[in-house]
Nucleic acid binder design. Structure first.
Length: 480
RNA sequence: UGGGGCGUCGCCAAGCGGUAAGGCGCGGGUCUUUGGAACCCGUAUUCGAAGGUUCGAAUCCUUCCGCCCCAGCCA
């Protein structure tokens, strides 16, 4: 089959991430395996920016015969909620992707804990008892190295004991943290003994109060990737600085099949708020009706607004994937939905500013039904019956009493075609005392039923509407 | 100021030493069975800047300039 509907997706050049995946496949790096994951934190709804990541992760798995997990990065009980995990699952599925497995970082809490113990045993992590302010002060600045915590050289046995007691609930929030022992003088802050675990006496949406210590993203993410045998861990640019830590952890705890983190530039849309924090604010303050308010760029908002999954996927395929910061013009998104809807949306005829038309030679009281095409772009969309009678309305803009030369619409003495109905000719203009046009008197040509002229007469068809078949509708105005 | 990234048309984006793809947008035109549709044409002598290497550079080297990210016990 000729791909006359070839999309940007099929024509799109291979982006740098797919190039890496293909290279790894070619060299047999992961024994021909490709495994990705989409790792949202259930602390809000997904938006169009997430769609880019979803299409990337699921797309690569799909195209290269791999798998893609949906993994909730739920390591911060304070911000997360089941409402969000349900919404996220709905949105991903609606976009047209099915995950190989539904997983949660919280499912790994026990194993992550054991990884932490292993790290302590290796002498690569320690329990720090400095408070938050002190830790910040010890961290140094952009130009000055940090200082070692006085607790940095606690013996392994003491660290093991303290860490176990942290888990046991002996300490208050903030009393201790587990930190990696790397390098307080590193120019990369992420390596200045990053925090791995903190004490949080808070109920978790899945584990309840089974835990009072929770792993940090930097600790949980690479190890969760490794546990799932993810091959390519794709994330956004701001995590580039975290990669050395990602590799450090994986290097210390994982023997084979280590995952690799690859960063790409997140999506930005002009005139669009894409920050989860700000979207949450709009929802909480009641500025919008909810996460699916059609004015929001959330997946559920776009869905409610009439966007189709196809159009969003097409958009993601068109914008590409690279490392350059970008601000996509919303016109690009709108183009995708227009193209999709144009191809499949059924049409209706409507009149915004009605002008009454009386067909003087059409039998009084007669009503006939004409077949109107549902979608000129798609013959299979069929036709519908629309009543036609002596009195009907056309768009005011479709009539001009004194038309310029290239005006193909109705004017006195001129003939025009009513879409899928008849040709009509304007014979008289009825006005009120002030010269306002009240109605038009026209004649119709019975031989042109269906809007076809037996003698090949042409004319741009105009929309029309039978009298008394109106319904009040609100018409969205174009926002320009 | 230290570190990590990035700079190709208004917005995206290919290009990987052999003489600037494509999409969106925009401009013009064609089309008398909707069109904010479709189709056609046009839209970077130039790749942040300056030097250098080379027969040849957006692609290699040097310096400079600009923008983004990092000092959460957030992700």
């Amino acid at each position: 089959m000729a791909d006359q509907h070839s999309t940007a997706a099929t024509a799109a050049p291979v982006d740098f991430i797919r190039a890496i995946v293909d290279e790894d496949l070619a060299t047999g790096k992961h024994h021909g395996r490709v495994s990705t994951r989409f790792p949202p934190e259930p602390n809000g709804y997904l938006h169009i920016g997430h769609a880019k990541s979803i299409c990337l992760n699921f797309g690569i798995a799909q195209e290269r015969g791999g798998s893609c997990n949906l993994r909730f990065d739920d390591t911060n009980p304070a911000k997360e909620d089941v409402e969000y995990v349900d919404a996220i699952k709905d949105d991903v599925a609606w976009l047209g992707f099915m995950w190989s497995a539904e997983l949660y970082a919280s499912d790994y809490f026990e194993r992550l804990y054991r990884f932490a113990v292993e790290l302590i045993t290796q002498g690569k992590a320690y329990v720090d008892s400095l408070n938050g302010d002190q830790i910040r002060a010890y961290r140094g600045t952009l130009t000055e190295a940090g200082k070692n915590s006085p607790y940095r050289d606690r013996p392994v046995s003491e660290n093991l004991d303290l860490f176990a007691r942290m888990r046991g609930g002996e300490f208050a929030d903030g009393a201790h943290v587990l930190r990696a022992k790397i390098d307080m003088a590193s120019p990369n802050f992420n390596l200045r003994d990053p925090t791995l675990y903190r004490i949080r006496h808070a109920a978790h949406h899945r584990t309840g109060d089974a835990w009072c210590i929770y792993p940090m993203y930097d600790f949980a993410h690479p190890l969760s990737d490794a546990l799932e045998r993810i091959t390519h861990s794709i994330c956004t640019l701001e995590f580039e600085d975290h990669r050395p830590l990602y590799d450090w952890l994986v290097g210390a705890l994982i023997d084979e099949d280590r995952p690799r983190q690859i960063e790409f530039a997140r999506l930005n849309l002009n005139y669009t708020v894409m920050s989860k924090r700000k979207l949450l604010q709009l929802v909480q303050q009641g500025v919008v009706s909810g996460w699916n308010d059609p004015r929001l760029p959330t997946i559920s908002g776009l869905r409610r607004r009439g966007y189709t999954p196809e159009s969003i996927r097409d958009f993601c395929a068109r914008i590409g994937v690279a490392k350059k910061e970008n601000v996509i013009d919303v016109a690009q998104l709108e183009h995708s939905i227009r193209e999709d809807l144009n191809r499949r949306a059924p049409r209706v005829m409507t009149v915004l500013r009605p002008l009454k038309v009386v067909l003087t030679n059409y039998p009084e009281g007669q009503v006939e039904e004409v077949d109107v095409i549902n979608n000129p772009e798609d013959a299979s969309a069929g036709t519908r019956k629309v009543p036609f009678s002596r009195v009907l309305y056309i768009e005011r803009d479709d009539f001009l009493e004194d038309p310029p030369k290239k005006f193909f619409r109705l004017s006195p003495g001129k003939e025009v075609r009513l879409r899928c109905a008849y040709f009509i000719t304007c014979t008289e203009v009825v006005k009120d005392g002030r010269g306002e046009i009240l109605e038009l008197r026209c004649t119709y040509d019975p031989s042109t039923r269906g809007g076809d002229s037996p003698d090949g007469r042409k004319g741009t068809p105009r929309g029309w509407r039978k009298a008394k078949r109106s319904s009040i509708t609100s018409i969205p105005t174009r926002s320009t």
